[in-house]
């Protein structure tokens, strides 16, 4: 309801000329830009490179996070030696990495992918670790009663038990990676991407293009969350509740 109300307000504001500010572009103009961007293929060029970087970074970051989190959850030695450094590093704001990353990897795709894999890495590590550590003692006792081997304990008890938490991490990683995709395009300005399209719009004061970009970014984020929610609900059917409720 609220978005609809705002839209009507926006539409009326531009139609009746309540504001002469060039910041207020009529919805019709945004629509025209949308059509133009879509048909000319401009949108797809930007969106494709953004999404490609997003998925590459997310895949790298989430996989590394999964392994790292599992190692930290399963091995006290690993936790005691590497854990403290990890917990210190995770305190650093993600954007504080940008200068370092640009020195190491430049301003191109490699740097951007490195940045957003870092964004996906931290939540996946934390939630994987948390999930493994919170396997109930009661479940482990059942495994002992039935003489499970270490491998059976891991695959039949620890991993399934940690799965909901791991999914939370992956879900967060997906959201962070998408936010970081945009962040990377703002901060490491070079190349193409939906973020760069918006920067172009801002620099030329094409508010319609900026607004269109905002809408596209929102839609992509929404779709990613939606897909992740459905995959999760499908794989964790045994919980009896649907996580994806929109």
């Amino acid at each position: 309801m609220l978005p609809l109300g705002l839209f009507v307000l926006w539409w009326m504001a531009s139609k009746y000329g309540w504001s002469q500010s060039p910041l207020l572009v009529p919805p019709g103009k945004v629509w025209a830009t949308a059509v133009e961007q879509t048909t000319s293929g401009q949108l797809w060029i930007g969106l494709r490179s953004s999404l490609w970087r997003d998925l590459a970074g997310f895949t790298i970051g989430a996989s590394a996070g999964l392994l790292f989190g599992a190692a930290m959850g399963l091995s006290r030695l690993f936790e005691n030696t590497i854990g403290p450094s990890f917990h210190t590093l995770k305190q650093i704001s993600l954007f504080a990495w940008i200068p370092l990353i640009s020195v190491w990897f430049g301003l191109g795709d490699t740097a951007k992918v490195a940045f957003l894999s870092l964004a996906a890495f931290f939540p996946v590590v934390l939630n994987t670790f948390e999930g493994i550590r919170s396997v109930p003692r009661e479940s482990i006792e059942v495994a002992r009663v039935f003489k499970f081997s270490r491998w059976q304990l891991l695959t039949k008890v620890v991993f399934p038990s940690a799965l909901p938490s791991i999914f939370t991490g992956i879900h967060l990683g997906l959201v962070y990676a998408w936010l970081a995709t945009l962040g990377a395009e703002y901060l490491l300005v070079s190349g193409k991407g939906i973020g760069n399209t918006m920067i172009d719009g801002r620099e030329h004061f094409w508010m319609d293009l900026v607004l269109f970009g905002v809408i596209v970014v929102g839609l992509v984020g929404f779709s990613l969350t939606w897909i992740a929610g459905h995959v999760e609900a499908r794989l964790l059917r045994w919980r009896g509740t649907s996580v994806a409720q929109f």
């Binding site: 479940s139 059942v142 039935f146 003489k147 081997s149 039949k156 399934p160 038990s161 964790l236 045994w238």
Partner: peptide, 18 residues
């Protein structure tokens, strides 16, 4: 102490895993 991710028969089957 059943495992919530397994069906009834799979839970019972755990008793025979080894």
């Amino acid at each position: 102490r059943l495992f919530p991710w397994l069906s009834v028969e799979k839970n019972i089957g755990l008793g025979l895993l080894n």
